[in-house]
């Protein structure tokens, strides 16, 4: 009597992700397992249906703006217009989120909410994710320090694979807030939100808005929030690095 196949074995077999010897074993057991055979047939039918629903597009002409992305020619007007529209939209969103921040009394939750809104607003930006690029670091540091009212210098998170893209200024509750954006090689982005916040020095706390998580803390009159869609442990490792450098 052979053992019935598990779903895990079956899917590994179906997707051709088995080493050759276990493949032979599964095939042997499959012969005695009509239920597993039926499942395989169903899965094959699912694949056919998906392929029928979304046909191959290799015969469709590729829109010119897509190929142009790969071969930048002299500046394209429509892109410029799109960028301006995007910037205007960001202004609207920023203005709106700004409103909610001027609520009564500072608080961790408020800090986290502001950080998450800012994160979600700006990480999706292709053209203008930041105002001042990291390449203009000296200017960014002095400008942001002046606006936030405290010496500002973004931490180096390169050890975790994230490099600084740059920063921007946002409305905050007590002072202007700074938002630094970092990106890794896969295009994943995280942000570090910093604003003045009178509060006791605090431990790390987590807040989440949808799939975006924020790890926030208070230190020395400033509120910090490191925000991204990473697992908590990864965020925590980065927050610790940031914390050590921001002391």
């Amino acid at each position: 009597m052979t053992q019935a196949l598990t779903q895990e074995e079956l899917i590994a077999y179906f997707e051709d992700a088995l080493p050759p010897d276990s493949r032979a074993d599964i095939e042997e057991r499959l012969r005695h397992d009509p239920q597993a055979q039926a499942t395989l047939a169903e899965w094959a039918a699912q694949n056919e249906q998906l392929q029928a629903l979304f046909p191959d597009m290799s015969d469709d002409p590729i829109p010119a703006h897509l190929t142009a992305t790969l071969r930048p020619t002299p500046r394209r007007r429509p892109m410029l217009v799109a960028a301006m529209v995007a910037l205007f939209a960001v202004g609207l969103v920023g203005g709106w989120t700004g409103r909610t921040l001027i609520g009564p009394g500072p608080g961790h939750i408020q800090l986290a909410q502001a950080a998450i809104s800012a994160h979600d607003t700006f990480v999706v930006e292709v053209t203008h994710p930041i105002e001042v690029p990291a390449s203009d670091r000296a200017h960014m540091d002095s400008w942001m320090s002046k606006r936030i009212g405290r010496p500002m210098s973004p931490p180096d998170l390169a050890a975790t694979g994230f490099t600084l893209l740059g920063g921007r200024i946002l409305p905050g509750a007590q002072s202007a807030a700074g938002l630094y954006m970092y990106e890794n090689a896969e295009g994943q982005r995280i942000t570090l939100y910093i604003t003045q916040q009178d509060s006791q020095n605090s431990a790390f706390r987590f807040s989440a808005g949808g799939s975006t998580q924020s790890l926030h803390w208070n230190d020395n009159g400033l509120g910090f929030a490191l925000t991204g869609t990473l697992p908590r442990d990864a965020l925590k490792t980065m927050a610790k690095q940031a914390y050590d450098q921001l002391l």
Binding site: D120, V123, V124, E186, G187, R189, G210, S211, T229
Partner: peptide, 19 residues
């Protein structure tokens, strides 16, 4: 590599649209 970039962009997009 390309699909990974696309998927990351899609995640960002879904998050924004949810809000």
């Amino acid at each position: 590599w390309l699909f990974r970039i696309l998927i990351n962009r899609h995640r960002d997009l879904m998050r924004r649209d949810q809000r």
